[in-house]
Every structure is written in structure tokens, then in C-alpha cells.
Computed example of a mutant assay.
Amino acid sequence: MKDFSKELGFKTSRSSGAGGQNVNKVETSVTVLWLVDESEFFNDHQKELIHSKLKNRINTDGYLFLTVSESRTQLMNKNKAVEKIVELVDKALIVQKKRIATKPSKGQKQKRLDTKKKLSEKKDNRKFKF
């Protein structure tokens, strides 16, 4: 978990939704911006991973952005935005292991067939016989 919060930029705007007069006059919504290509904390391979996994959140200028307007105060929204963007980037950097295809064992095949046979016999016993 790298702390690249020094490279983040912030923009504020008025939040939408209910909240009375406070919503109309105070800019509590925070948008956090981060220029991925200019980062000094990540190498080229990590930047490529971030670009590929978060391509829907990166705009044409190369900025990764996230907007938070959960809280009533700008400071709390700013802190939540930093937490969320760090978490988002950390998840993007995780490389999943490649799945190795395996075949079912003889025991598993036999168990499956036995279960099918038992179920078939149970249903067969339900039938009315003369």
C-alpha cells in the first residue's frame, strides 16, 4: 500500500440531493484527481496495470478521478476520497494467479454416478406399481 496522496489534486463543487440551504451554498462535494502517468511512486508495469483495470475511471487527459459527496463537510469528503482512491489503486495492482485446469478424480466421478443412481432409485420407488 503506497501512499501517493502528495500527487493528488482536489476540486470542490456543490453536492446534489437533499440537505436544505447548506447544499445550495457550500461546496462539500470533493473530486480527487490523479495523473497516473506522472506518478513517481509506481513503475511502468504498475502504471499499465492501473490503466488497464481502471480505464473506465481515467479520462482522455490521463487523470484518474473519483467524486465523493457522502458527508456534510468538505474535509470528511476529502479524507474519504483519498482513502477510496488509494484502495482502488491497490486493488488494481493485484495480479490474479492463472487458473490451472484440472480433471476430476476417479473417486469424484464414481461418487457423482452413485449419487445419480441413488436419486434415480428414490424417484423410481415413488411410482405406483401393479
Rank of each mutant, 00 (worst) to 15 (best):
M1A: 09
F4K: 12
F4R: 09
K6M: 11
E7H: 14
L8H: 06
K11R: 10
K11H: 04
R14Y: 12
S15R: 08
S15I: 10
S16M: 07
S16T: 11
G17E: 11
A18R: 14
G19R: 05
G19S: 05
Q21W: 05
V26W: 03
V26M: 04
V30K: 03
T31E: 00
T31W: 00
L33W: 00
L33F: 01
W34T: 00
S39V: 00
E40C: 12
N43Y: 08
N43L: 07
D44T: 10
Q46T: 11
Q46G: 07
I50R: 00
H51E: 00
K53Q: 06
K55A: 02
N56I: 04
N56G: 00
R57W: 03
I58S: 01
T60C: 08
G62I: 00
L64R: 00
L64W: 00
F65M: 02
L66Y: 10
L66P: 02
L66M: 12
L66H: 11
T67G: 07
V68E: 09
E70W: 11
R72I: 13
T73R: 05
Q74W: 06
L75I: 15
M76G: 06
N77R: 11
K78P: 04
N79W: 04
A81P: 07
A81G: 12
E83M: 13
I85H: 05
I85E: 01
E87H: 13
L88H: 06
L88K: 08
K91F: 06
V95I: 15
Q96E: 12
Q96D: 15
I100M: 10
T102C: 10
K103R: 13
P104N: 14
P104R: 14
S105R: 08
G107W: 04
Q108V: 14
K109S: 05
K109N: 09
Q110F: 09
R112C: 11
R112E: 08
T115R: 04
T115I: 12
K116S: 10
K117E: 06
K118L: 14
L119P: 01
S120Q: 15
E121I: 07
D124N: 14
N125L: 15
K127Y: 12
